[in-house]
Amino acid sequence: NQASVVANQLIPINTALTLAMMRSEVVTPVGIPAEDIPRLVSMQVNRAVPLGTTLMPDMVKGYA
């Protein structure tokens, strides 16, 4: 099963992502692949992401 990127904390809108904000977890539906975590660092979210939410490509500016 593919691990996805999950929010490790509440991430406010327009926040630049850091490693501490993300974790890898096997979830359904599948979100951004966990191997993309290094690429996500310093990218901004375009909405508030609650703790435990799977990051989807449309939630991260410049990812999709």
Rank of each mutant, 00 (worst) to 15 (best):
L51I: 10
G52H: 11
N8S: 12
P57L: 06
V45S: 10
L17M: 08
E25M: 07
G31F: 01
T15A: 10
V49A: 06
V41R: 08
L19T: 14
A34T: 08
L40E: 00
A7D: 00
A16Q: 14
A64C: 09
P57V: 08
T28L: 04
P38L: 13
T54C: 04
P29K: 06
S4K: 02
M22V: 10
A34Y: 11
D58H: 07
V60R: 00
R23V: 05
N46F: 14
L51G: 14
P33L: 07
L55S: 01
M43F: 12
L17P: 02
L40K: 01
L17S: 00
G62M: 11
N14K: 05
A34P: 06
A34H: 14
L17H: 00
L55M: 09
A7C: 03
Q9H: 10
L10Y: 08
M22P: 00
V26N: 10
K61S: 11
S24E: 10
A16Y: 14
G62D: 07
I32S: 01
D36M: 09
I13M: 10
A64W: 03
V60P: 01
G52R: 05
Q2P: 15
Q9F: 12
T53E: 07
I32G: 01
M22K: 00
V6H: 02
M22N: 00
M21W: 03
A3N: 09
S42M: 12
I11K: 01
L17F: 03
G52V: 01
Y63L: 05
A3M: 09
L19Q: 05
G52P: 00
L51E: 09
L19D: 03
L51N: 10
A34M: 08
N1E: 15
P12L: 07
A16N: 08
M43R: 08
T54F: 02
V27L: 06
Q9C: 04
T15V: 11
G52K: 07
V49D: 01
D36V: 05
V5H: 00
K61Y: 15
V5W: 02
V30G: 07
R47I: 14
Q9M: 13
V6F: 02
L40D: 00
E25N: 14
G31A: 03
I37R: 14
T18P: 00
D58F: 13
P38D: 14
A20K: 09
M43W: 12
G31L: 01
V6Q: 05
N8C: 04
G31M: 02
E25R: 04
I37P: 01
A16R: 06
N8P: 02
M21G: 03
I11L: 11
L51D: 10
V60A: 02
S4H: 02
A64R: 11
N14P: 00
M59P: 01
I11Y: 01
N14Y: 12
S42W: 14
G52S: 12
E35H: 06
R23I: 04
P33W: 08
M59E: 03
V26E: 15
V5E: 00
G52W: 07
Q9D: 11
I37N: 02
R47C: 05
I32D: 00
L19N: 04
N14E: 13
L55W: 00
T54A: 06
Q2R: 03
L55F: 09
N46D: 09
L17Y: 00
M21K: 04
L40A: 01
V60F: 07
L10E: 13
M43G: 03
V41P: 03
I32V: 12
V27M: 10
E35W: 06
R23T: 05
N8E: 12
N46I: 15
V27K: 11
P12Q: 15
T28K: 03
S4W: 02
E35V: 05
L55P: 01
A64I: 14
P29N: 12
N8Y: 12
E25A: 06
I13G: 10
S4E: 01
V60K: 01
M59C: 05
Q2T: 08
A3G: 13
R23Y: 04
T18S: 09
S42Y: 14
S4N: 01
R47G: 04
L51Q: 12
N46Q: 14
I32N: 00
M59F: 09
R39F: 11
M56H: 06
A34L: 04
E25D: 15
R23D: 04
M21E: 02
L51R: 07
T18Y: 06
R47L: 11
G52I: 01
M59V: 07
P38F: 08
G62Q: 11
E25V: 05
R23C: 04
T54G: 03
V27E: 02
A3L: 11
T15Q: 15
R47K: 12
V5Y: 01
P57N: 10
R47Q: 08
V45L: 12
R39P: 02
I11N: 01
T54L: 08
P50T: 06
Y63E: 03
P12A: 08
V6P: 00
I13Y: 15
T28M: 07
G62L: 11
G62R: 10
R47D: 05
D36R: 05
I32A: 02
V5N: 00
R39Q: 05
L19K: 06
Y63P: 04
A64P: 07
G31P: 01
P57G: 13
S42R: 06
V26I: 09
S24G: 12
M22C: 03
V49K: 00
N14H: 13
I11S: 00
S24M: 07
A48V: 08
I11A: 01
G52E: 04
N46T: 12
N1Q: 15
